[in-house]
Computed example of a mutant assay.
Amino acid sequence: MIVPHLRRLLRQRSVVRFGSLLLILALFGLALLVVQPDLASAPRLVDRLGPAAPVAAVLVGALLMVALVPRTLITVAWGALFGPLGGAGYTLAAALVAAALGFTVGRMLGRDFVAERVRGRLARLDGWFSRQSVLGVITVRLLPVGGFGLVSYGYGTTGARVVPFLIGSVLASVPSAFGYAAIGAAVADPDEFNWLAVAPASFGLVAAAVLVARWRRAERAHRRRAADTAPD
Rank of each mutant, 00 (worst) to 15 (best):
V151M: 14
A80Y: 02
T157I: 10
I138C: 12
L73P: 01
L135W: 10
T72H: 08
G87D: 11
L81E: 00
G159Y: 02
A52R: 13
A62I: 07
V114D: 02
A56D: 04
Q132I: 11
G146M: 13
L73A: 15
P51F: 03
L135E: 07
T75D: 11
A160N: 03
T158E: 03
V114Y: 00
G127L: 01
Y153E: 13
V162C: 11
L109M: 08
A53N: 08
G86Y: 09
G127R: 09
R161A: 06
V114S: 05
A98S: 14
Y153F: 15
V134L: 02
I74V: 15
A67D: 04
A53L: 07
G147W: 05
Y153K: 07
L81W: 04
G149H: 07
Y90I: 10
S133I: 03
L59I: 14
R119D: 01
Q132V: 11
V151K: 14
V137A: 07
L63C: 08
R141D: 06
L125W: 04
A53I: 06
L150K: 08
V69C: 00
G159N: 03
R161V: 04
L64G: 05
Y90D: 04
Q132F: 05
L73H: 07
V140F: 03
R111G: 09
L92W: 10
A123Y: 01
R131V: 02
R119M: 01
R117E: 01
M108S: 13
E116G: 01
T104V: 13
A123H: 02
V76M: 13
P54Y: 10
T157A: 10
Y153H: 10
G120W: 02
A99S: 15
G136T: 05
S133H: 05
A93W: 12
L150D: 11
T75C: 13
L81M: 07
A88K: 10
L109V: 05
A67Q: 02
V140Q: 03
P144A: 14
A88C: 12
T158F: 04
T157F: 00
